[in-house]
Amino acid sequence: MKPCYFILSAVLLMLTSCKIAPQPIDYGSDGCYFCSMTIVDRQHAAQIVTKKGKAFKFDAIECMLNHLKEIDQKEVALFLVNDYGKPGELIDARIGHFLISKEISSPMGANLSAFSRAGESKDHIKAYDGVWYSWKELLQYFKSM
């Protein structure tokens, strides 16, 4: 009987340890996986979660994008970014809208911010001098850098 409990426990542990979900960011404590800076900015942090459930946290969207140059993106299940308009809230980067504006500083100097709705980014473009990108356009932009 005891070996059955051991096997059942091992299977349950494997199932729960591979959960593909965002991990909470402990602002002021967690470090950026790419640059090692402490993550403090609730408007510009980012995270990727692999298909195996491992989460990598970043202090800025540009750190995540630079890290993506070094890995096989096919292994990533979730691309997440903080919504500039809702600090601390992670959104799916693939449906996000991105603004690069010198008037909105981001932690690593790319001046890159994410928005959950296109209207929000367009309103910010009117208020700030900047260029907006879709996720695919942003990936191309950073790939060329």
Rank of each mutant, 00 (worst) to 15 (best):
M1P: 14
M1W: 13
M1T: 13
P3W: 08
C4S: 12
Y5T: 11
Y5Q: 12
F6L: 15
I7N: 02
L8F: 13
L8Y: 07
L8M: 13
A10C: 12
A10R: 01
A10H: 00
M14S: 04
L15F: 14
L15S: 11
S17F: 14
S17L: 15
S17M: 15
K19H: 11
A21W: 08
Q23N: 09
Q23Y: 07
P24F: 02
P24L: 06
I25C: 00
Y27Q: 07
G28I: 02
G28V: 06
S29F: 15
G31V: 12
C32K: 05
F34I: 04
F34T: 03
F34G: 00
C35E: 02
S36A: 11
S36I: 06
T38C: 11
T38H: 13
T38W: 11
V40T: 14
V40P: 03
R42N: 01
Q43A: 07
A45C: 06
A45Y: 02
Q47N: 12
Q47A: 10
Q47Y: 09
Q47V: 13
I48M: 07
V49A: 04
K51P: 11
K52W: 11
K52V: 15
G53V: 15
A55M: 14
F56M: 05
D59F: 04
A60M: 10
I61M: 08
I61F: 05
E62T: 10
M64C: 08
L65S: 04
L65I: 12
N66I: 05
N66A: 04
H67I: 11
K69I: 06
I71F: 03
I71M: 10
Q73Y: 01
Q73T: 15
K74W: 02
K74Q: 12
E75I: 10
F79I: 01
L80N: 10
N82P: 15
P87T: 11
G88A: 06
E89C: 08
L90N: 04
R94G: 01
R94N: 03
R94A: 00
R94S: 04
G96N: 05
H97N: 14
L99F: 05
L99D: 00
I100W: 02
I100D: 02
S101G: 10
E103S: 13
S105M: 14
P107D: 07
M108L: 03
M108S: 01
A110Q: 07
L112G: 02
F115G: 05
F115L: 05
S116A: 13
R117P: 00
R117T: 07
A118W: 10
G119N: 06
S121I: 11
K122F: 08
D123W: 04
I125L: 14
A127H: 13
Y128T: 12
D129Q: 10
D129K: 08
G130E: 03
V131G: 00
V131Y: 05
W132P: 01
S134F: 06
E137Y: 01
L138Q: 04
L139E: 09
Y141V: 11
F142G: 00
K143C: 01
S144R: 15
M145A: 10
